[in-house]
Simulated scan of single mutants.
Amino acid sequence: MNNALFDRYYLSGIAPDFTLTGSGYSNGGNTLKDTLDKFFDNDSDPSTDYRDAQANPVLRPYLPPGKSANDVVSELDAADGYKKLGAYSLIDGAFNVNSTSIPAWEAFLRSNRNLAVRYAQGSATDSPSNDTPFPSSASPSDPSAPASLTTQAHWAGLARLNDAQVNDLATRIVEQVKLRGPFMSLSDFVNHRMGTLNNETSYAGALQAAIDLTSINNSVHSNAGGANPDYSSPYMPGRPPASTLSASTTNIPGDLTQADVLLPLAPRLTARSDTFRIRSYGEVRSLDGNNIVSTAICEAIVQRVPEYVDSVTNASDNEPWDEAINPTTLVESSSFNDINKTFGRRFKIVKLRWLSPDEI
């Protein structure tokens, strides 16, 4: 299931703009092509850009060399266009789950810091108070409505983390990455370890394990009421043995879970990096080879793009959505270009600059 959701499925948000009326849903005459035209700036209105398409906000349009916006819109407006959208959009600010940098994870987890969350009841919102929200739904229930109860704040509302808690969680996540990584896919990162039973990795995925190793949910488990299991077993802290019931407060709105963390952050997650910083050094020596006459150092930012290295030979069988190996049967594609089988996706230099010695 995790492989299907996190590695084989692509949620772009690009669809006709529907509104809910008294008679049901209506697109008001808007079509998929209208939305695609907005996303790829293929309309005649200079005041609009890709954000007006209301697609997944982390996506940016991408036009490969040799293809116009009109070409791409025509391809994606076809019956099989949904299979091809990933080749014509890029993620802005993707985050590699294999990172072992605590400050990087801390900054990533705080992406929504100070964000107010509107409750389902009317116009009331949850106060930011310099914390980072992780609601379990887009419109959580207001904990103060209809009446204030001692435990209701945990059974409604949402989980918010202060900066110290985010730092603690980031530290624990890095511990899990070092313990379990490298992750070869997002499902590998999200899921618990399969196969031979291991007390540290078999009972929860990396994120849930990291949460359980913090004290973030302590107040919820102690103040929200209900039953709590005995966690003194040799199993990983926070994960009871299979014969023991979970806490009855598990998964209530105030109880932070892996799913709550993934909800706002999953669109930017990746198990690999596609942008690299490469530095090169060169020098010229005197004829006798004893003295360095001149040196030069350059830095290039190199980005991997969706299309393959050779998009000309057998062009119809070497499109970005074609695969060298059939993922279902694991049989090599006979029509796939040998060059592309060997070298894969194309890399392009997006920035080049010369460095001075004091920058090294």
Rank of each mutant, 00 (worst) to 15 (best):
S144F: 03
A87V: 02
S185Q: 02
A79Y: 08
N3F: 15
H221L: 12
N228P: 01
F108L: 06
L265W: 05
W321E: 02
D310V: 06
S129Y: 05
L179R: 11
S311Y: 08
V261E: 03
G226K: 11
G195Q: 05
Y10C: 15
H154Q: 08
L287E: 13
K341A: 06
Y235E: 01
D163E: 14
S219A: 08
Y235V: 10
Y88D: 04
Q258M: 06
I278V: 14
R110Y: 04
I325P: 07
T132K: 01
G22R: 02
G81D: 05
L115M: 05
P128V: 07
D126N: 11
S187V: 09
S215Q: 15
M194K: 13
R239K: 13
G205I: 02
L186E: 00
L11G: 15
G86K: 14
F18P: 04
S68F: 00
T328H: 14
E75F: 05
G93D: 03
G195V: 03
Y308S: 10
A204Q: 09
A209D: 03
P357E: 12
V309C: 10
S129L: 10
R277L: 09
V190N: 04
A15C: 13
I325R: 12
D168H: 13
A87T: 05
P234D: 15
A159I: 00
T275D: 01
P240D: 04
D37T: 06
A94T: 08
Y82G: 13
A271K: 07
F347I: 01
N98Y: 06
Y9V: 03
S89H: 07
L115D: 05
R345P: 07
N162L: 03
F95T: 06
L265D: 09
P65V: 11
V309W: 04
D358W: 11
K33P: 04
E75C: 08
L330V: 11
R118S: 07
E200V: 00
C298W: 01
D288I: 15
R268E: 06
S101L: 02
R160D: 09
D338W: 01
A147S: 15
S136F: 08
N199A: 14
G157W: 05
Q152Y: 09
Y50G: 04
S136M: 07
N291R: 15
R353Y: 02
